[in-house]
């Protein structure tokens, strides 16, 4: 029997970590028929920082990791290309982008970080929770908005907002006291973290899908026979599907819970729902094209001159976009 050591999603994302991952990994030996001993811990419980994911996978410190791609891109901006701010603002578009990028993504992961893709899925659309009345994207002008990636900061700045970087543990209190006016997170995370207690306006304008993945250390992977690998891959396909399903249904439920609608699994709140118009979506897309994409191009091409060309041929082609 082989031990499989796993660093899972943040324990604060209860639905992902406890609701889906823990039971999935507990059932993995049965599902694959392999004599695996499972060692599963949410990454924050074992003091693992999301930024270090690719290094920890490469060294074999963990066999399988749940990776926050945005943060792990510190070690290679190429990966962030799967989900740049403002590129895919709904699930069907995001699905197309991920499918298009998957192969080049996996190749690079194998070559550079000694790891392989098992799943790729969105945490959920990254939406705005504001403590000030906002009716449209135009109202972001002059607001302080908490941002956590450089491309998001660039896009927010383009929209006239002031991006502010804060550590996650202080976001709730900073929204409460007014250090920032808006925070960006997924409907699920915001609901679980009780952000509606300290904000009033909910704006479901997805700036990104916050794509995550489960990656496996390649040396560990190669210990299995092709037949065993097929079983493992099949099992992880079901995990990927569960994560996608949750992103869709959980998002709907949390959004409804946040804004006083029917509420199944989340906590009910009464935020004002601000429905974005087509004009708003267009403004987001324009801001992204003008700021986030060039910023990412410069960072990524520095590491790999083919970077933006690869992106144009994959995500760009799938989404009808081009980085010059």
């Amino acid at each position: 029997p082989t031990t499989m050591r796993i660093a899972g999603n943040f324990s604060s994302s209860v639905a992902h970590s406890e609701g889906i991952e823990r039971p999935f990994f507990a059932g993995l030996p049965a599902a694959t028929g392999l004599p695996l001993t499972i060692n599963f811990n949410p990454m924050d419980v074992v003091n693992v920082k999301a930024d270090d994911a690719l290094r920890l996978l490469r060294s074999g410190a963990f066999d399988v990791m749940s990776v926050q791609i945005g943060q792990a891109s510190r070690d290679d901006p190429f990966f962030e290309g799967i989900d740049l701010a403002g590129v895919s603002t709904n699930f069907p578009d995001l699905r197309k982008a991920i499918d298009a990028y998957r192969q080049v993504f996996d190749e690079r992961l194998q070559k550079k970080f000694n790891a392989k893709v098992l799943t790729l899925w969105p945490f959920g659309p990254q939406v705005f929770y504001c403590r000030k009345p906002v009716a449209s994207v135009a109202d972001f002008n002059g607001l302080k908005i908490r941002s956590f990636t450089p491309t998001m900061s660039a896009m927010l700045q383009k929209l006239g907002a002031t991006p502010v970087t804060l550590s996650f543990s202080e976001v709730y209190t900073s929204l409460g006291s007014g250090v920032v006016d808006c925070g960006v997170t997924s409907p699920n995370s915001g609901n679980t973290g009780k952000w509606p207690e300290v904000t009033t306006h909910y704006i479901p304008l997805a700036v990104s899908g916050s794509v995550q993945g489960h990656f496996i250390n390649l040396a560990y992977w190669n210990k299995f026979s092709p037949a065993e690998q097929a079983k493992i891959e099949a099992a992880f396909k079901t995990l990927e599907q569960k994560m996608w399903d949750y992103a869709v249904t959980g998002t709907e439920d949390s959004q409804s819970c946040n804004t006083g609608g029917p509420c199944k699994n989340g906590q009910p709140f009464k935020m004002t729902l601000v429905t974005p118009t087509a004009d708003d979506a267009a403004k987001i897309a324009a801001a992204s094209a003008a700021s986030a994409l060039p910023l990412w191009r410069d960072a990524c091409n520095k590491i790999d001159p083919q970077c933006s060309a690869t992106w144009n041929a994959t995500v760009g082609a799938a989404r009808g976009l081009k980085i010059d």
Binding site: D51, R74, D75, D76, T149, P150, S153, L295, A299, I303
Partner: peptide, 10 residues
């Protein structure tokens, strides 16, 4: 080796 950049300031 990776040419890593800092997360916010890049």
């Amino acid at each position: 080796e990776f040419g890593s950049t800092s997360s916010n300031l890049q």
